[in-house]
Each structure stands twice: as C-alpha cells, then as structure tokens.
Design a protein around this nucleic acid. Sequence first.
RNA 1: GGCGGCAUACCCAAGCGGUUCAAGGGGACGGAUUGCAAAUCCGUUAUCUCGUGGGUUCAAAUCCCACUGCCGCCUCCA
Length: 475
Amino acid sequence: MSLKLYNTLTRKVDEFRSIRPGEVALYTCGPTVYNYAHIGNLRTYIFEDVLKRSLGWCGWKVKHVMNVTDVGHLTSDADSGQDKMEKGAAREGKSVWEIAGFYWQAFKEDLVRLNILPPDVWCKATDHIAEQIGMVKALEAKGLIYRLEDGIYFDTGKLGDYGRLARLDVAGLQAGARVDLVQGKRNVTDFAVWKFSPKDSKRLMEWPSPWGVGFPGWHLECSAMALKYLGEQLDIHCGGVDHVAVHHTNEIAQTESITGKQWVSWWMHGEFLTMGEGARMAKSEGGFLTLQALIDKGYDPPAYRYFCLNAHYRQQLAFRWESLDSAATAFERLRNRAIELRQAAAANSAGTADAQTASSGRLADFREAVEDDLNMPRALAAMWGLLKNSKLPARQAWADLLDMDRVLGFGLETIQPRKIEVDADLAARVEKLIAERTAAKKEKNFARADEIRKQIAELGVELKDTPQGPVWRKL
RNA sequence: GGCGGCAUACCCAAGCGGUUCAAGGGGACGGAUUGCAAAUCCGUUAUCUCGUGGGUUCAAAUCCCACUGCCGCCUCCA
C-alpha cells in the first residue's frame, strides 16, 4: 500500500496516507448538467477514475462521492442575469428539471461508455438546499458574511490564509483585477454564498431562506455535500485545474471556517485537454466535442480513454485527430491481443516457474508506474512489455493483463471484437461479391479476384483472407 | 497586471543528476508469411542528442540563470 501522489496543497509528490487506515474518502467535483460533457471534461473524469482504481488496486477501500450541479448559476455574461440551467431550458423549451435530468443521464452514459466506475454516492445540489442554508447560518454565526444588494457574501478578508491552495497573491489580484467588481464587495476575492432572485422576475429554481428568496452560491454545494457524506475531514478532493484558484479555494474557506479543521488532506487536479488549433474547449463557448461526436466519427469510446492514458494527468494534452487515430489503432491492437490471449488462456496450462518470474517483473514495472503519481504512460509501456513477451504462457499473461486492467479500465475481461452495425442489404452484396471472388481464386483468376476486392473496398468494407476463410468488416 | 505549466525522434509521449547518454504507442522502412494484400511475427528508425545560450557538478535531457516560442488559470469552463 505504497502510492505516491501529487498534492496541489504542498506542490509535491508525497506518499499517500489516509486518515483512517485502509479507507479513503474521495470527493470529486461533478458536472453541471445543462449540456453534454465535452471530451475535455471527460479527460478529468478519466483521470479521477484511474486514481480511484489505483487506490483500490493498492488496497484501499474507497468511498467516492460525486456531486451533480443542477442549480442554475450565472453565466459569464454578467449582465444577462440568466443562468446556465435556465438558458439551457429556454434553448430547448423544457423545464430546468427536465434539462438537469436529461443531461445527468447523458453524463452517466458517457461514464459507462468510457468504463468509468460510478461513485458510491451521487448527490444533487438541489437535494441539499437545507444543508447549504445551514452552512450559511453557521458562517453567519461566525460573523464571516455580509449582505449586498444581490446576495450574501463571504468576507475573505477575515481569513488569514485565504488562497493558500492556489498560493494566491491577494494584493496582486487587487492590483491587476480584470474581474468586474460587484458593487460593495469588501475584497475582490469575496464570493456569494446565497444569491437573491431578481426582484422583477421569478426564477425557475429558487428557495426561501432566512435572508430572502434565492439560490445557493456555487461553491457551497460541494462543501455541504462533502461534509454530509464524508465527514469533516476527507482524504482526497479532485477537480480540474481551473478549480484551484476559485472554486476549491472558496470551498476551503467556507468549510474550514466552520469546522476549524483542515478539511482535505490531498487536493488533486487534472490538467486540461486543449484544442490544438487555438480554439479552447469550453462549454460556455458553444463549439465543443462530445463523446458522441467521436463515436459518430467511428471511434470507440475506450480508444479515447487510451488516448488520455497515454499522457500524464498533470500534463496538458492537445487534442488532435491524428493523435486520436494513433490511440485508436493502439487500442484495437490491444483489444485483439486481449481476445487472443483470453482464448489461449482458456486452453493453456499454468506456467513454469521461470515464466512466473518474468511475469512478476512486468507487474513490478507496472506497479512502480502506478505508484509513481499514476504514471499511466509508463504503465501502458509495462502492459505492452507483457503483451510482447511471447515466452509467457497464455494463462499467466492473461492473468497479469487482467490485473493491470483493474487500473487501466479497458474492460478487457469481457471485451468483444469491434462490431459495427451493417445493414442487411450491404451485407448481402458483400457476401455475394465474396462468393464470386472465392470462385475466381479457385480458378487462379487473381486479376478478377483483386478487382472484386477493389469493389468491396469501394463499399467501405475491408476484406481479409484468413486461414479460416475470408473475413470482412465495415470500416 | 498576477499565478502556473510546457519545449525530448516524422507524430503522441515517458524519463527529472550517474546504475539503459533516452520507455512505450503510432507512423515509416526492410524481412518472414500471402497468388497479391490485410492481419500477425522479426528487425530498423534520437549516439557531436533532449528549444537556444550560459553556468553549477567528477557527472545534466534531468539543477541554476538568461533568452525564444507555445499553453493554461486568475470569468459559477474539467
């Protein structure tokens, strides 16, 4: 049980130790369900999945909580007064609740398609309004909040170490702030813990509170739900790097103000997937790639997972189609190799002592990579080392591969050959051509055979002659 | 303006003081196999080299400084 992890709090890689022996309380920031997740979001969830699997693989029992932000919060168009949820609802002519339900479901499906294990607890912000109001009350009792026209704000100036996580230079922020100052805020870094509904319009989502009708500030939900499900101290809290400076910093401020204890031992952040051609992938900017878009282009979701695992989680990764192609090819080889190995293993007897040794060497490399701050590129290298080792008895290699897959999460145990939906019409045409070609081959009329193969290729079908006869598949 | 990161072969990407002066994947090329292909297997593909220029050190891709280029955050974007 030795695992070294980078901690944003200390900016160092340290050996992970849980608060309670053998158990890990893990909180990961979940999606705001007003639209589909884009592949950049998904990269972060893949990283968190690898973290969670690695903890389990190293022997910890993990309790994982993930929130779902279904409360509308403000868009970046500060003056519009509309929030993302309501905007999504207006766009699609549905209620905010329908929107939230729909995209949450879509998100869950993405997780399944990427072999991301679901959390033990899903918690929705709107199911925890009372807890959030309770936190504001607690903050009020400590004299840490103040009231402005549009909401109740947290006074960050009262905290000595505000911004410790992000190492914020608060003075510097004030000097160079390019954030529009809310009128009356005492510090640039102050943030809303409760927002009032606009006087002239009724929001679709709003709740009464001791301070007035409105809705909770965004940062509050994670604090409230993490406290509820994981207690006052938890081991690891994750999210995207963009959350370091604001969201997580504010979560810490609120939570630790209330409990008086260090809340989170380990903060971990996944780096961004960037779009090669300058365009940034952001939900709020309209154009973004979803997992479904990749599928529509013919990629299998685990190929995207492979693409992500090929780079370290703390490294920015530029999305390029050719890089994805490269990952997709590698993943197909892995899939085929795994299927062969599974079949061979079923027929094979256990290995010799020598083979056992060779095998444990590979596993040792793999373990070292995992334990070194989740170095998946190295872990994949170890996996290929195992697959390339033809001396290893199949049963042994298969057992080791499955063990590695507990971390990698490609679902190799039950993986099936890639199949692409083909309509019956096309299938019939291809079969007919193949029959003709087989006949031509029998007569040694290879020119004719090649011509037919060309015709088949024009239908977007790849034809292979195997010892078992011709095999085809739609590309 | 503040904070942070990155520059390694054709591409992606590990390595972060010596113990391999550089993993793995993709691609390309050569060979085996094939009627020819595909798939598969074997081999080759950074050796005045790790953006450039200095420095530290017995020793640097790995540490320090400068420069250049790129990227991200500081907006309720993962």
